[in-house]
Design a protein around this nucleic acid. Sequence first.
DNA 1: GTCTATATGTTGATAGAC
DNA 2: GTCTATCAACATATAGAC
Lengths: 231, 231
Amino acid sequence: MTTPGRTKTVGRISRAEQARATKAKLASAALDLFAKQGFAATSTRQIAETAGVSEGLIFHHYPTKLDLLLGVTSHHEVFGLKVRALMTDSKGVPVRGQLEALAQTFVSTLAPERKETMLVRVLLSEALTTPELGKLLHRTRETVIASIESYLQARIDEEELRSDLDPSVAAQGLLGALVWFFLTHQHLNPRAWRAQSRRYAQRLVDLWLRGALAEPRLSSSGSKVRRGASE
Amino acid sequence: MTTPGRTKTVGRISRAEQARATKAKLASAALDLFAKQGFAATSTRQIAETAGVSEGLIFHHYPTKLDLLLGVTSHHEVFGLKVRALMTDSKGVPVRGQLEALAQTFVSTLAPERKETMLVRVLLSEALTTPELGKLLHRTRETVIASIESYLQARIDEEELRSDLDPSVAAQGLLGALVWFFLTHQHLNPRAWRAQSRRYAQRLVDLWLRGALAEPRLSSSGSKVRRGASE
DNA sequence: GTCTATATGTTGATAGAC
DNA sequence: GTCTATCAACATATAGAC
């Protein structure tokens, strides 16, 4: 009906919406490729092809290739908030349960072959040489640590955790143990991954809570507390 | 007669020795540059310039740029052995001391601004996209885990550690907590690094050994065991 | 063994028509 | 906003003289 080329709206989509759509398509394609091949190894040409647009168009939406990565990243910057929300709302949940939930968040977030997981790996890798990214990662890391830390402090105040526990060390140790495991087991297939990571997460929390030392032999025997069964 | 193919010694250095020297010079220059800028961001031209030889010569000694990285890497592949040696010889040392020694090894090995540290970071990063490197890292990681694990198993057998402790999880958790900390604190200057990492290492080992839980209130009060003082 | 010169390809980014 | 055409720079790797 309307003459094409003349009007700003084609059907129900305005030019601006169309633009936003292509921009998103570019971001999505870039994410896929970065995750698969890394940042440096992915060319703008390839991104354009995957997105189904011309190469020059990329630079209209993103002035530089790095901006593309940053755009993609900011879009997925939710992880820190997720953890913070989880650790903040902890009414009545026992420590063990709460920490297992935290670990579970990592299990489901950093599962192999998930887009976000691969993005995280690319970011960690690229942050080495791109200071801007390094700072960004550093900030989210600190956010996560801080939420865990303040949660732990609350539990210390309520005498559920040792009074001489260093919450900062405890938080960082736990986070490190989780992240490192998940990062080094990406080669597993999803089934094996789920099984192993759940088992690891649960036992790690147990270790973290109870420690590794053998219990000093006390007078009475058989007084050992059986651990909560389940799973 | 002076056989052209036979001798060729200039002064006291043979041609072969000269060649080995330049090859080493190339490896050293490559290591420096890779550590500083990453693998992909370092050009063969730059390496040649730094080493003070022509660019073409690189490919005489190393068929491809990746071979250069692998060469550099294999040269520094001693870390796994270091840990193994440390954990194997543990006569009479108490668990806490032994684990603190292990942590200390990480502190001194992964200090910031050390060449090896930066190489490790580059390798971790590059392993993402280069399968060959990924396998290599995976193997050394397993070596390290295995030595720690078998040490822990021995301590379990001698009832110094909990009988229901999972040595694999314990080893991986400890390693992860250490590596992750050191990798995420590279921005610190050497002084701050030493202070913080020592403190972290010590408290982490303590946490790992004793756990985080508050001691259940027993009948008698004041019976809490004071922690070993020192440092 | 080492150099110079060059092949061959790709890269990120720009200019201008539509 | 999108495309086509093209840029200069730089990449890794090779060939052949010395």
